[in-house]
Design a protein around this nucleic acid. Sequence first.
DNA 1: CTGAAAGCGCTAACAA
DNA 2: TTGTTAGCGCTTTCAG
Lengths: 329, 329
Amino acid sequence: MNISEFAKEAGVSVSAVSRYFNDGYLSADKREKIEAALERTGYMPSYSARTMRTKVTKLVGVILPKLSSESISRITEGISEVLGEEGFELLLINTANDCSREISSLELFRQNRVDGVILLASVFTELHRSLLSKMRVPAVIVGQKLKGFNCVCHNDFGAAYAMTKLMLEKGAVRPGFIGANPDDNAAGRDRRLGFEKALSDFGVPVQEKFMEIAKFNMDSGYEKARHIFAGRERPDALFCATDNIAAGAMLWCREQGIRIPDDVMIGGIGDSRMGKLLYVPLSSVHLHYKTAGMEGARMLLSEMRDGSEVRRILQLEYDVIERESTMRI
Amino acid sequence: MNISEFAKEAGVSVSAVSRYFNDGYLSADKREKIEAALERTGYMPSYSARTMRTKVTKLVGVILPKLSSESISRITEGISEVLGEEGFELLLINTANDCSREISSLELFRQNRVDGVILLASVFTELHRSLLSKMRVPAVIVGQKLKGFNCVCHNDFGAAYAMTKLMLEKGAVRPGFIGANPDDNAAGRDRRLGFEKALSDFGVPVQEKFMEIAKFNMDSGYEKARHIFAGRERPDALFCATDNIAAGAMLWCREQGIRIPDDVMIGGIGDSRMGKLLYVPLSSVHLHYKTAGMEGARMLLSEMRDGSEVRRILQLEYDVIERESTMRI
DNA sequence: CTGAAAGCGCTAACAA
DNA sequence: TTGTTAGCGCTTTCAG
């Protein structure tokens, strides 16, 4: 059933029906008729026809590298909360860490499918940049800084610096490092830079044999811990770029009978829920993921409403959470 | 720019352009012209106009009670994987456990916004039923059984039975229970029934003073554990309806110096990632969340392709994962 | 306040 | 193979 059939059924004009669903510039009489007919027929206006006329989809495209990650789902929760209040729905694309899917989703969104785009990605290429700048609708990047685009990000450098400093102050002299993909400017590069800066500020040398790069998961943290502890000399502290990596490293220590924090202190980043459940509660740095999602959504909303040409970067700060894994006396 | 302007620019007819983007019934000459013009103009056909003509949105609505839950995000990952391969995108609604949002989303989806719906909900009312049966597009429920509708679910009864049995076989004689909302037929009612059936099969009495109902989170598990252990007599085993609840209960035990599994065995359901990281690794029952999502998506796909009138229920089985929390000698 | 009518951009039937 | 053209269902002037 379409609007004109329905109008006939209700005994009113097409415009009356349209007005009923929009501005509501309508006499009580007609309103009643329409409501009665609605009850009878269950008519619903077609969204695509409306969208075609108005050019408004009330949809925001959200591109994610994966779904089942605590940090990402917290960010998404923030996004959905703010956007939902404003009547927007999310068109979600899970790229499964596949860069080509990221690109094709951006392509997809150029077909006027959405009113705005929020992009969570870990690595940016030239192609990303060029597609983003060709975008017809506003876009916001969450979790990374990308020059020339609207971003909401964390202070990854500061967070890593703070965690490393914490361990150095507790007397660490041979700190180890398990980092993430350096092409990821946030979790990879900046956290490494934060670690290294802290060492240099404390006059502690960076030792390559204590440095590893892991994937974003526990198993990889476990594996890299094994490498780092394989040599004769062992680190007395271990900075891990994520809590997952730290958890993996901890598991390995437990299996080897390496005591935490007595033999080695361990610190992570992200303050994931499991941190306090680990057999030695994990010191970490809280990053405001949900807030980042909410702020990203707000930035997008204001951009969609009155899209300014000024690009902005919002950086959220962090909180150090000290737990037993670094509590050496 | 619309299709006719673009066609003029490319020096071909509109149908040629339309065919280029669809069946591709086209001479090489025109194809070239179109591609050249595409390069020049960056033209993209409008999705809403296409949808309006074809009545195909290539969108599946997914209604979730929350985003940041491990089980739900695993299910969603499965859904997105299968649907993505078939060129469908997800229109995600996060109802934040708000029943009225569930209802309004179902309403929303009646506006021909999606080609199908997947619903994850914990509690079903008459209203859900009536809206679901008024749905114009196929719908699949994941994680629950609802008579008269397509469902993919877990064997919650069996899983709870198996975990309880495990602890009874290890000699538990005063088993406690921290369950979930009984209006939730899967995680609430069936898991309780499984627990009780195991007790009756073993001739162990159900003791009300050892039974509590918790929310779906750790804090609540912690709290309820406190209640259960408050009395003079204490349980020697604790079945928890979810791993989160179990983790909370464990934290409480750790604080109180109650030894696991010596003083009390603890078992959960869901096999969440943190289970093996807990200070006492948690015995649990693996439920195939991701597979459930994938199967739900497949069921929906086949329903969208050749919607049969026969409703089906697919129940996935479970695997018991024994870890230290129940390893009493 | 109301209704008639002109499109929005596209697809597909039809005629060539 | 191709091009012309009639809608898809809605919103929004514009004239009453």
